[in-house]
Design a protein around this nucleic acid. Structure first.
Lengths: 342, 342
DNA sequence: TTGTAAGCGTTATCAA
DNA sequence: TTGATAACGCTTACAA
């Protein structure tokens, strides 16, 4: 015998047993009154409710989950919490989960596969009911752990051809292709392309592929000198702009397929007094709201950021609650918003 | 007898017992090897490690937490996940927690006290080790539950005089006062003040108080017509700007103490060709990066967003791990960044 | 340094 | 509709 000194010391927190005693019923009746009220008579329900208030009972989900081997926690791994683009998706997830009494655990990988693996391991140790991963490339160990656990997973970053389980995204390739074609149709012939580091990022790679496909489709030559990879940030966009414009054969339009790059470029044009689109046309990949308020407003893609979050949560819950089985691939719509910058 | 059919069916997931069997040791040795390796001989450690790999063991923290009544989960409630200002704080929290092997659960209240209460209840049911709340006003029930639970809490929104437990913030009143004084010293006499809805928001109230105090200190009259409350958003900022400038006695400077209001105003000036600060000076409360890239760059406060998150996590962990006791109030520094808009 | 036994607070199962 | 009992998978407390 060990733990219980003798019913004394910090009586920290009432247990279900205390509620049962106060209501003079069994713990099972309390449990049922809480989780399946329909299976309990009205009188019992009232007595239990009263007892719960009386003793100030707060259910222990840890114990409940251990016993039922069910959790109401979803684990989410994003590359960066701070990046506002992911914030919209997180909001979408959170909204849906809250309506279904689920909790959200978040980890960020800082764009590192190893950190993602560590986060996934931690989530599996917590026995999350499901996972949402923004990235679509993972370490072999991460893949193995997920497979072995049997936990449903949604991937978000891009419409990967071989998902772990379920995917919810728009097509980065299609989106980049559509925007590039849009520029070509407007008459631009030397279309620059600026993205984030493509080697480490499936999204950037897909966008670049779309850009290339569009050039070919439009009968434009591919000029490697017009393609730049930059780190994220406003300053990067400004620098890329200058490098693509101040050269022998300058770009007549630039498509910024990453983060706040276009924003930085637009602001740099304002500072230098460069006419947009007179001197150079600007197009962006995202950040719909802000870009529309710049002078001139910037042509961009409207991406279903929140929708990705909402749908991800929904397909995950459908699977968890047994309403659906089998693979899921949701291809969400994007939209080109043509504004004065092109 | 009940649950265990008879050692068959879905052998879903190895347990510590399986590891122990494979390593031919007791479960306690496995447990120790995992949590206090120093207390286990090198040979045992190796055997356990090997067995863990062999059976593909993923520890069940639910069971561990139930048994030890310790959790490694911190609950965070923010008004809005999508708002990028909170994102920086969340990032700070996440960074520190990860280094200390803790997990982060996030809920958003949508600026509703009732939703905050619901989130807090859910977190307490999960037996979180600590709470971080962005808001400083709570429902009586929420306060009671937190007190009864005994979990440590950090509040973030503003330096509230009567915290639940610990506070980590800068002083919204001091910051607003400093900026208003700054404008007065530059010679502006009719300083407008635009904030978010103050009745529902302790932060807005504190900022308004600081604004008033500064006017008095500078010997400027308080003109209620120069004070506006707006909903958040770029469009709001633009509207407030126009209302304060296009009037008989226009403001000569406007201090936007909320969200992206200043950004909206600056962009509206660009659209209308209004000289800044010639026609009207603009000052903001936050959003340091972006505002510095506008034309002209906007004077603003640099607030310790990430730092708030990091320190919050730190004081919480200190308390949880018994390295500290008693009240904590961390008053973080802000900074006025004077730029061309004033 | 290692092992044994009890118990953490719930829920599944079966019986009444 | 309600209750008794045995798990859930781990850690605490103590003994060896």
């Amino acid at each position: 015998m060990t733990r219980e000194g003798a019913e004394k010391d910090p009586p920290r927190g009432a247990r279900m047993r205390d509620v049962a005693k106060a209501a003079r019923v069994s713990t099972m009746t309390v449990s049922r009154a809480l989780t399946e009220p329909a299976k309990v008579s009205a009188e019992m329900r009232a007595r239990v409710a009263e007892a719960i208030r009386a003793v100030g009972y707060v259910p222990n989900k840890l114990a409940g989950s251990l016993s039922s081997s069910r959790t109401q926690v979803i684990g989410l791994v994003v590359p960066s919490i701070e990046n506002s683009l992911f914030a919209a998706t997180i909001q979408g997830i959170s909204d849906v989960l809250r309506r279904h009494d689920h909790q959200l655990m978040i980890a960020d990988s800082g764009y590192s596969l190893e950190a993602e693996e560590a986060a996934i391991r931690a989530f599996l140790e917590q026995r999350v009911a499901g996972l949402i991963l923004h990235d679509t490339t993972h370490t072999p160990t991460a893949v193995r752990m997920i497979r072995a656990s049997g936990v449903p997973v949604v991937e978000n970053g891009t419409l990967t051809p071989e998902p772990l389980d379920m995917v919810v995204s728009y097509s980065n390739a299609d989106a980049a292709q559509a925007m590039t074609l849009h520029l070509a149709r407007l008459g631009y012939r030397r279309i620059g392309f600026v993205s984030l580091h493509a080697a480490a990022n499936a999204r950037s790679r897909d966008r670049r592929r779309g850009y290339g496909a569009a050039l070919e489709q439009a009968g434009l030559a591919f000029d490697p000198a017009l393609v730049l990879e930059m780190p994220p940030g406003l300053a990067s966009g400004a620098e890329a702009l200058v490098r693509l414009v101040e050269r022998e054969a300058p770009a007549d339009a630039i498509f910024f397929a990453g983060d706040v790059l276009a924003m930085g470029a637009s602001l740099e044009c304002a500072r230098r007094g460069w006419a947009v689109p007179g001197k150079v046309a600007l197009a962006a990949f995202d950040n719909f709201d802000l870009l529309g308020h710049l002078v001139p407003p910037v042509t961009t893609l409207r991406l279903p950021r929140q929708e990705i979050g909402r749908r991800s949560a929904q397909v995950l819950l459908d699977r968890i609650q047994g309403r659906a089985t089998g693979p899921v691939s949701v291809d969400l719509r994007f939209e080109i918003i043509h504004r004065a910058s092109t």
